[in-house]
Design a protein around this nucleic acid. Sequence first.
DNA 1: AAGCCATGAAACC
DNA 2: TGGTTTCCCTGGCT
Length: 514
Amino acid sequence: MAPVTPRTAFPKVLIERDSDSEQSSSEEEEEKLDEEEEEEEVGVSTANEKTEKLELGSDANRKGKAPITISLKKVCKVCKKPGHEAGFKGAAYIDCPMKPCFLCKMPGHTTLTCPHRVSTEHGVVPAPRRKACKPLEYVFERQLRPSLPSIKPKYVIPDQVNCAVIRYHSRRITCLEFHPTKNNILLSGDKKGQLGVWDFGKVYEKVVYGNIHSCLVNNMRFNPTNDCMVYSASSDGTISCTDLETGISSSPLNLNPDGWQGPNTWKMLNGMDINSEKGLVLVADSFGFLHMVDIRSNNRSGDAILIHKKGKVVGIHCNPIQPDIFLTCGNDHFDNRLRVWDSIFGNVDSPSREIVHSHDFNRHLTPFKAEWDPKDPSESLAVVGRYISENYNGAALHPIDFIDTSTGQLVAEVMDPNITTISPVNKLHPRDDILATGSSRSLFIWKPKEKSELVEEKDEQKIVVCGKAEKKRGKKNGNISDESDDEGFMSKSKKSKSKKTEWKLSRCTTKDNR
DNA sequence: AAGCCATGAAACC
DNA sequence: TGGTTTCCCTGGCT
């Protein structure tokens, strides 16, 4: 029981609360009084509201200070106003009506009634076409157009989780890449800079290389002439070239040779692709410069070229038919839109199609990556994770969307009751009807339902738990212990309202080849 | 079981 | 312009 100690200089304090809400204890009120920094809680009371006011610190009134009203009424956590509350009601999220729509950012409605939430077609802007007249367009018509198939293949959607490694990485997954020739090998990079190699055909065969990068692995590409070697671009400003059999890596490019000199000079690498004809790795940094690495010599090739005056380049993609033509993308700070630029015919200033889709950024999330289906040469099917959850049988799940970008239609949405986290990183297999998903620290392999059911009967242990990969920090010497998984393994059974998967126990190896 | 903290980038004022 | 705030997260901890 802390005694109330009224201060002579303190103004009169009024406490207001809902008349029907639970009474708070007197200690709570006293604690609030002791803290002078309760400005956030201060609200102005109006005469017709059902409030109860307590007068405290009455001698302060003589000083002529305005009374402070402390509101204990329930207020909206978003706008701090009473009368409504934003947040989850069961599995459905109720928006604050005072804010613009969370999805399309337009005022006048909330996410719940946003037209884009129901029909993704709504936001599609048709492509403006122009007559081909420039040399680049001439090249396109003559060399590329004949080899571009116009017929879309029939979409087969991998809609059932076939196998998974739970808590595989020690930090969230940031990028994925399938092996170019071995069908069952999936590479994954994480926020900590580690590189995972998983044989999802055997499920238990997996390894994590621990010292490839010092922070986020943003992109991976295989060496087109040697599929044991993989290039990775990282926010540590390096490209690493890693031998997957030995785990030994080299750094053909390091943009921060002098180490950390502050955020104004630290360069990060996001977009990366390979021009296989020229044997070049193309990568762009957070200041808008393009760098190249020669694959044969594994050395830097040429000088850096400024390609984005606005800075951070997020992606690079070489045209698969004519690799000398590549596209890049930067960050325009306009979220929740999927945009399609129609090769060189589109107006660079505006996308040819724009689809409103919920993939808001968040500090705990890997940025969402929309990916084309590599099996669709017409480049109309894209896969992208969804930020906003939906109520599926009482559970709030974040589905993974398949979108036909030529129409804007949602072709399919896949979800699993065991995946309760958002899935920002997704990759479709280059040959098979397989989807790989990176969600938080776990990896999932999706296959079409009919195929999965056949596999399921044969393969019982298809979900592997890699245990609690995060160990406590060393207390003796202050070292941060390596987050390998020698201890702390645990089996886990997740609650879910529908089908429950039985998690199996396994070990996960972390290799450190320092 | 509920709630706190860290994270760290963009929006807001 | 910079200092402050921040809506659908995540994981770990108390």
